[in-house]
């Protein structure tokens, strides 16, 4: 599997998109630091949302409606941050594809992102329909999982450049 990931990295590296990203980063020296900073800020928005929402769910709600209204306020931020993360993330991968694809952390991070975003959406949908005052154990566990999942994503993201395959 890691050999295949390595080949994908090489393939992207030879593509016109990757050459375009490298060319741009060569002209504008500040582009990659700016992408990294934007990526960190976007990550903070997603982690803050997971902390606010996930931990509140895990604690259980004592007022009906709070869960749904908290989720509705966060939704545009989650969507916006996910878009920003995708754009900056794709650019950074195009800039140095093998750095990502040769890391043991990159593919697990992508899988966790799919899980983390799905958990957000499922929970927002479920809580919109919540009528009882108390949250079920399942929902509370899902809230705790949401929080843990985003912590794992940040950890995996930071470790991409340190933990290499092979």
């Amino acid at each position: 599997m890691w050999a295949l990931a390595h080949q994908i990295g090489i393939g992207i590296n030879q593509s016109a998109f990757s050459a375009w990203a490298r060319g741009l980063a060569n002209i504008y020296f500040w582009l990659i630091p700016a992408m990294q900073i934007t990526h960190l800020l976007g990550m903070s928005v997603l982690m803050g949302s997971a902390g606010l929402y996930g931990l509140r769910l895990a604690r259980g709600f004592d007022q009906p409606g709070i869960a749904a209204s908290a989720g509705a306020s966060l939704l545009p931020w989650i969507i916006g941050a996910a878009l920003v993360q995708s754009l900056t993330g794709v650019f950074m991968v195009l800039h140095r594809p093998t750095r990502a694809f040769d890391s043991l952390m990159f593919l697990p991070k992508l899988a966790l992102i799919v899980l983390g975003l799905s958990l957000f959406l499922v929970l927002l949908y479920k809580l919109k329909r919540q009528t009882s005052e108390r949250l079920s154990v399942m929902l509370r566990l899902a809230g705790a999982s949401l929080f843990s999942c985003w912590i794992a994503i940040a950890l995996a993201g930071r470790l991409i450049s340190f933990i290499r395959a092979g």
């Binding site: 990550m43 903070s44 928005v45 997603l46 982690m47 803050g48 902390g51």
Partner: peptide, 20 residues
């Protein structure tokens, strides 16, 4: 790397929660 990963996770939580 361990400390930097810890730093990034915790600063992400601080900044994200403070932001809201």
């Amino acid at each position: 790397p361990v400390l930097e990963a810890m730093h990034v996770v915790s600063l992400g939580l601080v900044v994200g929660a403070v932001l809201f």
